[in-house]
Write a protein that binds this DNA or RNA. Structure first.
Lengths: 126, 126
DNA sequence: ATTCGTAATATACAACAGGGAATAACGAAA
DNA sequence: TTTCGTTATTCCCTGTTGTATATTACGAAT
C-alpha cells in the first residue's frame, strides 16, 4: 500500500454533493406518468389486481384507483383495463399502451439517473 | 402556400411529451438548495433584506426566514449574514459562500434544462 | 339464488405545509 | 431617549393530500 499523498496548507475539503431530483410527464390534467404511477402499473401487471397492487406498495386502494383513473383519462387509449364481478371478483390488466408507457418512462428515468451521476462528478463545493 | 401533404392510412399521431422535473441538493436536514431557495438568495443579494426579498417573490417573510435559516444551518459556513437594528432596521447580505451556492446550483439547473430538452427529442409516444 | 373477491364510490378523519397576523428584540441615527 | 424598519419568533387558521372505513355494484362459478 502506497502512502497517501497529503496536501499541505489549507485542505480544501471536497464536499460530495447529494444531488436529487424528481421527473414526471405531464398530461392534460397535470401529472400523467411519474415514478410511483409506473411502479403501480408494474404491480398491476404482476398481480392482475388494483387491490393487490396497492397493498403490495402499502398504498390505499382509493389512491391507487385514482392514479389509474387519472392515467386512463389522460392517455389516448387506457393503460389499464378492469373488470368487475366474475369468479375472482374481477381484476385489472395492462394494455399494450400501458406496457409502452412503462417502457417510455423507465428509459426517461434511467437517463435521468445517469444525468445525476454525471453531474455529481462535475459539480462540487469547496 | 403549398398544399399540406397528408399521409394516408392510419396516421401515427406524434404526441409531443411534456417532460417535467425538479432538482435540488440535499443536506443534513433534507433540502439544502433548490430553485426557490436560490431565487431567494439572489433577491437577498439584490435588495439587502429578507423582508424585501420575500415580498418581491410574494412569499411570506416567515417562510423566507425559515429557508434562509435552513440553508445557513446546513452550509459549512452561512450563506446569508443578517443584522438586526440600526438605521434601516437591519438587513441581510450574501456571503461569498452564498454567491458560490448560487453559481453551483445555477449550473446544475441549466444542465438539467438541457437534459430535459434532449430527452424531449429522444422520447415519444405513438 | 348464493357465494366470493374485486372494482367503484362516498364520507369522515389525520397529518402536514404554508400563510396571515401579531409581537418582541434590536441598534444606529436623530 | 425617541424613532424606525428589519430581524426573529409565536400562535392560529386553512387548504391539500392521503388514510381509514364503509357501502354498493358486479358477474362467473357453484
Amino acid at each position: 500500500m502506497a502512502k497517501e499523498r497529503l496536501r499541505k496548507g489549507t485542505a480544501a475539503k471536497r464536499v460530495p454533493l447529494d444531488l436529487k431530483g424528481r421527473i414526471w410527464i405531464d398530461g392534460k390534467e397535470g401529472t400523467f406518468l411519474g415514478y410511483g404511477r409506473v411502479i403501480l402499473l408494474e404491480r398491476i401487471q404482476e398481480y392482475g389486481s388494483i387491490t393487490k397492487a396497492a397493498r403490495s406498495m402499502e398504498m390505499s386502494y382509493r389512491h391507487a384507483w385514482e392514479l389509474v383513473d387519472s392515467m386512463n383519462r389522460q392517455a389516448s387509449r387506457p393503460l389499464v383495463e378492469s373488470a368487475t364481478g366474475g369468479r375472482g371478483g374481477g381484476g385489472a390488466r395492462l394494455t399494450e399502451e400501458g406496457e409502452s408507457a412503462i417502457a417510455l418512462f423507465r428509459r426517461f428515468y434511467e437517463d435521468f439517473q445517469a444525468f445525476l451521476a454525471d453531474e455529481g462528478k462535475a459539480l462540487s463545493l469547496s
